[in-house]
């Protein structure tokens, strides 16, 4: 036992500093190689399907043509065209207004449901499954479901309205109602997801603090505002970032239900990008709009990180 120990330490002692550095470097090189082998598959996919597309987008914002004829450098023309295009401006405004309606609504509803789920002790499993069912559907399916439910002729909501003596409402055919209706459908689909997310966050909170707060005489609302909300900051950080990224890409439900109408009241940035790919021979415009969306999401998530992240 002692022999082995001395043997080991004497070998270490005989290493010259130079040799030591060399071995260290070799070890480091080997770890680095191993690490990149582990990262390899992801890096490959990342380069082919994320990095190259983003660089391609950026370059394409300065070019025209490319689909039918050869590409040509046009400087800032695409940027000028995009900002001057009234439909591009409308699509940006619609996407932002939609997100500003959908995200706070779904967060508030999901938080109320999560708090209720935490309060009850029996029967929560089937309730969770039921609440999650809309989240499992593709957005186009959710959209079509509401196309029935809200249908002006045979939708159940309009039966109810007519039954009460009102005039049927054409939810998706009215320029001022269509976008809020789309937001409502997405809230219906998203509620289950965010409820589970907030419930997981709530369940992970330390119970000791709550007992202490109650002993201090803090009421339920005060406990929620002063204790729960600040403690949930990491969950909110993730939620706000993720919801922003997802909602600014609004596409599926408008594509399925309104195709941007009526009178462009629901056209979203993604829908306009999609149209530009197939309708124009020129990719410069669509690329510029896409790049604008990338920058918007990056800036917004950066800003949210700055505002919401834990400060140490």
């Amino acid at each position: 036992m002692t022999d082995v120990d001395t043997g080991l330490s004497s070998t270490q002692l005989t290493l010259s500093p130079e040799e030591h550095r060399r071995l260290r470097r070799r070890y480091r090189r080997r770890t680095t190689l191993t690490a990149y082998a582990f990262l390899g598959p992801n890096l490959l996919a990342f380069i082919a399907f994320l990095l190259i597309p983003v660089v391609w987008l950026f370059v394409s914002t300065f070019r025209t043509g490319g689909v039918l004829g050869p590409a040509e450098f046009v400087g800032l023309d695409n940027w000028r065209d995009t900002f001057a295009d009234p439909l591009a401006r409308t699509s940006i405004r619609n996407t932002v207004v939609y997100s500003a309606m959908a995200i706070p609504a779904v967060f508030i509803i999901a938080m109320v449901l999560a708090l209720a789920l935490r309060t009850i002790s029996r029967g929560s499993a089937p309730i969770r499954v039921a609440l999650y069912l809309p989240t499992l559907q593709p957005a186009v399916v959710a959209a079509f479901i509401f196309a029935f439910v809200l249908h002006p002729d045979f939708g159940v909501i309009n039966y109810a309205i007519r039954g009460l003596g009102g005039d049927p409402i054409n939810f998706l055919g009215d320029t001022s109602l269509a976008l809020p209706t789309i937001a409502g459908i997405e809230v219906w689909r998203g509620t289950g997801f965010w409820t589970m997310m907030f419930l997981a966050g709530l369940t992970a909170l330390p119970s000791e603090l709550y007992h202490a707060a109650e002993i201090d005489g803090a009421g339920a609302i005060r406990r929620f505002l002063r204790l729960t909300l600040p403690l949930l900051r990491p969950t909110f950080y993730f939620a706000v970032i993720f919801a922003t990224i997802v909602n600014l890409q609004l596409f599926d439900s408008v594509f399925a239900l309104t195709d941007g109408g009526p009178v462009n009241s629901t056209i979203s940035v993604s829908l306009y990008i999609y149209r530009s790919l197939f309708l124009f021979g020129d990719i410069g415009f669509g690329a510029t709009l896409s790049f604008l969306l990338v920058i918007t999401v990056l800036v917004l998530t950066g800003l949210q990180t700055f505002l919401l992240r834990d400060r140490k």
Partner: peptide
């Protein structure tokens, strides 16, 4: 793992979390 370029790789991945897929459909 401690390897050369770890912070760079992590930052690259982190930034790209925020890249919306529907903005990349054309490329």
């Amino acid at each position: 793992m401690e390897f050369t370029g770890r912070r760079g790789v992590a930052l690259l991945f982190l930034l790209s979390v925020a890249i919306p897929i529907s903005a990349l459909i054309i490329p």
